[in-house]
Design a protein around this nucleic acid. Sequence first.
DNA 1: AGCATCTAGTAGGACTTCAGAGTAAATCCC
DNA 2: GGGATTTACTCTGAAGTCCTACTAGATGCT
Lengths: 178, 178
Amino acid sequence: MARREPLPMDPIAEAKRQWIEHGWEDAADGMVAIASIMRTQQLMLARVEAALKEFGLSFARYELLRLLSFTRDGALPMASASARLQVHPTSTTNTVDRLERDGLARRDAHPTDGRATLVVVTERGRDVVTQATQRLNEHVFGDPGIPSGELGQLVRILAGFRRRSGDFADPPSPPEPL
Amino acid sequence: MARREPLPMDPIAEAKRQWIEHGWEDAADGMVAIASIMRTQQLMLARVEAALKEFGLSFARYELLRLLSFTRDGALPMASASARLQVHPTSTTNTVDRLERDGLARRDAHPTDGRATLVVVTERGRDVVTQATQRLNEHVFGDPGIPSGELGQLVRILAGFRRRSGDFADPPSPPEPL
DNA sequence: AGCATCTAGTAGGACTTCAGAGTAAATCCC
DNA sequence: GGGATTTACTCTGAAGTCCTACTAGATGCT
């Protein structure tokens, strides 16, 4: 989105005011939390994509490359990639199409399962993802825009939400301090 | 996305392990925070869209209708709507096209500015957004999946991030009770 | 007045996401 | 062994986001 002036008033605080005015106090905090997440994601995604732009990568394509580059052989069945990235199988098909077009990955036949297709990162793909990761670490992840004192709280709250939403099974969590 | 089994392990915790293994400790927490936001947004959006499905609305269309329904005349110039919803003007064009197609909004000429177009919510649009809001309040916002004790923290952290990102100007904030 | 510039909105295109439907291979079960 | 079911992937299509480029109207400067 085009760069814009800051709004004179936080639009989410404004929405909360409206919610309360209409007598929906019980839902106001939930609405505010969800709106805040939506907007934060939009801002963070924009930062990430800006950092990836020079490599010709989108976040979706970066994530798949990164996942592949972390595996032993640089290869995964499409379905495994979908599961790990938590996206629809057709999204993976689409992402791999573009990575293939750009020479960053290719499809190989699965050695034993005739139904399955392996996505394999190419040499060029490895190069690109290495550079892109370095850039992201320097320019975005290393300074995400949230004080480090608050990062832990944020991550903990969101992890609880994700777990309760059925994202992943209960972990062998360390005994919680507190 | 299709309903899936919970993953055996939190994929974000897994990514953090990888980051540390590769010696990127400085960026690990930021990466985790950003990944957590992305995934949480995906889950929350899915819940919201599921609740809106029976009204034939997406979140984008709902938000625009809601914004219009809160104005005095149920009308706004396209540009104002874009600014308030913090989306690209072409996204608003697209959203209004669909609302118009479904008879929930229409375009009117701006009374004084020949360049501008007003989006106006129709009677049917008002009906639908009222019902949809009620449903969202009951099924999603009223129980967002985060303990109410943590909602405040979450919202405060994200508001800080949004403000520092230039989302809105410094508010006349109330003296913080810690 | 008249030219330059800015602003509002749209058209077209790239990319991402999901859903439904279809094909091919593997597995289950009698 | 052979049919029924499940699994893996792709195709097509709808929806959303953004970007670039364009048109028309408003504004500003000389």
